[in-house]
Design a protein around this nucleic acid. Structure first.
Lengths: 183, 183
DNA sequence: GCTCTCATGTAACAGGTTACATGATTGT
DNA sequence: ACAATCATGTAACCTGTTACATGAGAGC
């Protein structure tokens, strides 16, 4: 089975939903996967071209809805199988996340303690905003789609985001406290 | 003040330590910053060239140590100032981390519950390995540099890594449990 | 003599962002 | 008529990885 990049698999996944055009793929990712996956048109359109070339989807110019230039992509059997294969494969290595705040803190001796505290406070503030965003998305999902089977999985991903954000917030609080005490 | 990319600032930071050559920069990052920052020679050498061109460092071929081809980079006043400016500037936006596991889970309806559980177990296992790695680095630092001023900052970054890894582990356990119960 | 570590560098590639160009449709 | 949104696409650019080439010195 030929390998593609994760962006291509993400698009394959979206094409299983009601979103069938490049524009709609972008909309869905921005709305629902934004907290752990991003994408730009510069990736989507070339990827869709590749997907068709590889026989993973077929394109039909959907003139039915009146919009003559809208192109609808429908997964083929091969496309669905390719997606399933990828979904069933556990990751071979953890991605290592770079962290600019930690990088700055690593060279902490070159700045005053006040500036380091500002750095931590700012990070904490942004993590709290992120946390609250996740909570409100969560509430929206629970209100709007109380029965949908997919909703369960969406909530799992949000729970992850909340936990990691909370761990970061706790670290900021604790580290600020230690820095104040020890100087 | 001209802006450079974070990789360049990271190198500037390393050049404040005893590590003065491209090779030594790579060594230090691999040994001490690896859990939140990575770098390759393909970035280091071009970046060092730029750093010299911009007057942030001066290069002296250090024939003193016998090795004629080793190039030692020393920060200029401008270089140190550039580093300080960057260190004092809080981040303007949280980097969004992509997560392949969450992406797969998002399309969870297309795979069996067994495969999803394997995915989570595998993720959990790798997070636990990561956590243990951090603990052992932590112990090494405490034994080898009990007095060093820098050590405090290194331990802060490791604490962050441990907290985030633990949050991920907790999520794996909880999510596996919920999936088993609800089907 | 051989291997390992030290040491510097480049070229090709892969992945992703941004800015731009283009034009249709919908709502006010 | 005008603005907003829908809709597709490309080119230039930035960042980073991988593979490769090269060679010196140290230890066995």
């Amino acid at each position: 089975m030929k390998k593609y990049n994760d962006t291509t698999y993400a698009i394959l996944g979206i094409l299983t939903t009601d979103c069938k055009s490049g524009y709609e793929v972008k909309q869905l990712i921005d709305r629902s996967l934004h907290h752990f996956w991003k994408i730009s048109y510069g990736q989507i359109y070339p990827a869709l071209k590749l997907i068709v070339e590889e026989g993973l989807a077929e394109v039909s110019p959907a003139s039915s809805s009146g919009r003559s230039d809208k192109r609808e992509y429908h997964l083929t059997e091969k496309g669905l199988e390719t997606l399933r294969q990828w979904l069933a494969k556990p990751l071979d290595h953890l991605p290592s996340e770079r962290n600019e705040v930690l990088l700055k803190l690593f060279f902490g001796q070159y700045v005053s303690i006040e500036k380091k505290l500002v750095l931590l406070q700012d990070y904490e503030r942004q993590l709290r905003i992120r946390y609250e965003t996740y909570v409100s998305i969560e509430q929206n999902i629970q209100e709007l789609y109380p029965d949908e089977a997919d909703a369960k999985y969406w909530l799992f991903t949000l729970d992850y985001g909340k936990r990691v954000a909370q761990a970061g917030i706790d670290w900021c609080v604790e580290t600020s406290h230690l820095m104040k005490k020890e100087g």
